[in-house]
Computed example of a mutant assay.
Amino acid sequence: MAAYVSAGIDIGTQNIRVGVALGVVPGEYPLPKMLGFGTAESKGLRQGCVVERKEVLKNVLQAVRSLEKNTGIRIKNVSLAAGGIGLESFFSSAETVVSRADLEVTELDINKLKDACEKNIPSNILLNKRILHVIPILYKLDSKTVLGDPVGMKGAKLEVRCLFISIMEKYLDELIEIIEEGGIETVDVVASPLAASLVLLSKQQKKAGCALVDIGAETVSVIVFENNTPISLEVFPTGGNHITNDIALGLKISLEEAEHIKTGGLTAASYPRKKLDEIIEARLSDIFDMIDGHLKKINRSGLLPAGVIFSGGGSNVSGIDELARSYLKLPAKVASIQKNEQGALKSNHITIKDAAWAPVYGVCLLGSNVSAEEGRIYHVAQKAGRRIKRILKQFLP
C-alpha cells in the first residue's frame, strides 16, 4: 500500500487554515492521518470575496509557512475548500434513450445524461458561474425510480435529476491566482460545506435528513442532506460578525470585548444579562428565519429527523442549540469533528477539536482518497478555463 501526502486550504473571511494529511491508497476510505496544521488571520476578503489581493496573498503565505514550520513538509499543491457568498445550488433534469441494443444501461448512458442535464440549464443561471459539483439526486428507468446506480439494469428510457453546485467564477479565479502567486498549485476545488459535511456529519444523519449550518464571520451556509445525498445548498450574507457588532452597539463596548463575550471568553457580569441575551437572540432569530425560509422553499421545514447541526465560529454562541430547537422546531446541536481512534484530530504539535477546521480536514480526506493520476484529472486548469466537474461518488443516491 502506497502512502502519500495531501494538503488542503480554507481561505475564510476571518481566518486562513491549512492542513496536510498522510493518506493510504488503495483502502477502505480511512480517515487520513493529519500531519500538521497552519493558520493565519485573514484580511482582505469580504464574504469570501477578495477585495485586497496583496493582503490575502500575505496571509495565505503566512498560514502555509506556519504549516511548513510545524511539519517540515514543503507544500507544492493544495485542494481548495471554496466558500463564501458566491456559492449556490440549482437543479436540472434530463432524459435519454438507452444506447445499447440489449437495453442495458452503461456508463456511457450516464455520462450522456449528465451532459444533457447541464445543457438544459438556462444560460442566465450559468452566467459568470463555474460548476463545481454535479450530484445525481434521482434516477428513473422507464419512469420507475431507481435506488442507487442504474448501470447494469435494463430499460429503454433513462432519466435523472441532478443537483449542481456552482461558484462565482471571478471569486474562484482570484483565489486560485493568489495561491499560485504563492508558488502553490491548486489541484482540486471542493465546495466548503460539502467538504465539512464529510467530517461533521454521520452517515446516519445524512440518511435520515439533516442540515449542516456553518455560521462564519460574514456568511451563513446551509447544506441539506437526505438519503445520504445533498439536496440543496444556500449561502446568506450574514454571520458571526453581525452578532459581535450588535453586542458592541447594544452594550456600548469595544468590538474586542463584544467578541470575547460572544464566545464566552469574558463573563458578562458587568453587563445586563437580560439585555445581552435579547441582543444575541434577536440576531440569531434573523438567521433562523433565513434557514427556515430555505427549508420551506425545499419543503423540508420541520421535516429533518436528524435536525440542524451548527458549525463555524458563530456556533460558539452560548445556547444556540436551544434557541434553534425553539425557532426551527427541529433537533439541534453544535457539531464536533468525527474523532479518530485517538479521540481527536491530532497533529504533531496540536490537537484540533474545533469544527471550524472541518473544511480543511474534509478536502484532505478527499485528497487522500484519490491517486496522483486522479488528482491530475480533477486539476483546476485555470489558464485553460476548463469547468470543474467533480462527481463525488459518496453522494450517489
Results as ranks from 00 to 15, higher is better:
residue 3 A to C: 09
residue 6 S to M: 08
residue 7 A to G: 05
residue 11 I to S: 08
residue 12 G to H: 14
residue 12 G to I: 14
residue 14 Q to C: 13
residue 15 N to W: 14
residue 18 V to A: 10
residue 21 A to Y: 07
residue 23 G to A: 14
residue 30 P to E: 12
residue 36 G to C: 13
residue 38 G to H: 07
residue 41 E to Q: 11
residue 43 K to N: 13
residue 50 V to Y: 10
residue 53 R to I: 08
residue 55 E to D: 13
residue 56 V to Q: 01
residue 59 N to W: 03
residue 64 V to K: 05
residue 71 T to D: 12
residue 71 T to V: 13
residue 75 I to C: 02
residue 80 L to E: 01
residue 82 A to G: 02
residue 83 G to R: 08
residue 84 G to F: 09
residue 97 V to D: 11
residue 98 V to F: 01
residue 99 S to C: 01
residue 105 V to A: 12
residue 111 N to L: 13
residue 116 A to Y: 02
residue 117 C to M: 00
residue 129 K to N: 09
residue 130 R to L: 09
residue 136 P to I: 01
residue 143 S to F: 12
residue 144 K to A: 08
residue 150 P to C: 12
residue 151 V to I: 15
residue 155 G to E: 11
residue 159 E to Q: 03
residue 160 V to H: 09
residue 165 I to V: 15
residue 167 I to L: 00
residue 174 E to M: 13
residue 174 E to C: 09
residue 187 V to E: 04
residue 189 V to D: 03
residue 195 A to W: 11
residue 196 A to Y: 14
residue 202 S to V: 00
residue 203 K to L: 00
residue 205 Q to P: 05
residue 206 K to Q: 04
residue 209 G to L: 08
residue 212 L to S: 11
residue 218 E to Y: 11
residue 222 V to A: 04
residue 224 V to A: 04
residue 230 P to T: 04
residue 236 F to K: 05
residue 239 G to M: 03
residue 240 G to W: 10
residue 240 G to F: 13
residue 246 D to S: 12
residue 249 L to K: 08
residue 261 I to K: 09
residue 265 G to F: 12
residue 267 T to C: 11
residue 268 A to W: 07
residue 270 S to I: 09
residue 273 R to W: 06
residue 276 L to V: 03
residue 278 E to F: 05
residue 281 E to M: 03
residue 290 M to N: 09
residue 300 R to A: 10
residue 303 L to N: 14
residue 304 L to T: 02
residue 307 G to N: 02
residue 310 F to T: 12
residue 314 G to D: 05
residue 317 V to P: 07
residue 329 K to N: 05
residue 337 I to N: 08
residue 344 A to H: 14
residue 345 L to D: 07
residue 350 I to M: 07
residue 371 S to Y: 04
residue 379 H to N: 06
residue 381 A to K: 15
residue 384 A to V: 04
residue 389 K to Q: 06
residue 396 L to Y: 10
residue 397 P to D: 08
